[in-house]
Design a protein around this nucleic acid. Sequence first.
DNA 1: TTGTTTATACAGTAAAAACTGTACAAACTT
DNA 2: AAGTTTGTACAGTTTTTACTGTATAAACAA
Lengths: 183, 183
Amino acid sequence: MDGKEQLEKSRERIIETIAQNIHLYGLTPSAGRQYGTMFFHDDPLTLDDMTEELGMSKTSMSTSVRALSDLKLVERAWKRGVRKDLYQVKDDWYQSFIDLFSIKWRRSISLYSTTIRKSLNELNKLAADPSITDDLKLMVERDIEKLRYVQDYYEWLDRLVDAFEDHDIFDLVPRKDDIQEGK
Amino acid sequence: MDGKEQLEKSRERIIETIAQNIHLYGLTPSAGRQYGTMFFHDDPLTLDDMTEELGMSKTSMSTSVRALSDLKLVERAWKRGVRKDLYQVKDDWYQSFIDLFSIKWRRSISLYSTTIRKSLNELNKLAADPSITDDLKLMVERDIEKLRYVQDYYEWLDRLVDAFEDHDIFDLVPRKDDIQEGK
DNA sequence: TTGTTTATACAGTAAAAACTGTACAAACTT
DNA sequence: AAGTTTGTACAGTTTTTACTGTATAAACAA
């Protein structure tokens, strides 16, 4: 095996690992391979390049590069004279992790907050209604307590996402460089 | 609409929200509904109870309750005289989040670490080989640099998971109760 | 032991998701 | 303007995943 082949093998191994783990980002192995391919290319790639590299349809390349962009794992690049859209991986993996975390959870937090508030409102009214049985009232109060707990939890989660977005998390868990710098 | 119905509606709304968001845990909406149902039941449920409540096959209940247990969202309960397996939701959502985080990422971190180490080993040998062209050597060195970066990133992620597991994260982002206590 | 109850393995089916090829719209070129 | 080039919407197909029903193993009861 010559050197070029060996380099290729080393890359393939990494790309396959990315493909096998990208489900944590809610993406398919194909999108992972696409990401991996871009990762090892120093120049940005066009959709046609990706079609060429991965042997998949251009339509597929288009949809999955959009999925990668939505999660901010990939960004568009510009190169004068090139009409095709160019894409490259974002090189700050720490920021990519934060973006993922934020995108995935914020939406969920917001949905929960809304429904919980709505249900709590109803239940509070119901609990105050004098015409209901004691039995029901007890059940309502238990539900209110549970929802308050969940509400607090999501409020915590929201602050957690803040801590990532504001990079406060690096105070608690510093990057390697920062440790060396005694930061 | 009477009080009982209203309570039921409130619960259904929450359960549906759980179902719509549980994909963040890599689970299906059905598993989410199962979780939600258990959440509002104060007593632990059997597989037959769940079949009854959700109108799905017992086989399904069995597989998805296992998925919920694997992520530590649900645990087995014991009640004397009851032969059937009993399940209930774990009531500490903060801990559940930490468990999820840990289970999902540790595995990935470990896989990456192994493959990166393997590839770095090969590439370092290759870079030291005097018979390769300058051109190839440059590519090898660029790959080495990239992999070192990724290695550092995963080492950081590993420490991040530690910070969650060790509950250090609550120092940075305190629970609501702890704020009030001035902790 | 034999009979009963309960959970799950497995094969088959139904539903969902990923992928492809064609068609077309938008942007650019001449 | 007409002719290219490029990206994506959409319909159809393939592949994968979720779910069901039957069969069986394990645990318990008599």
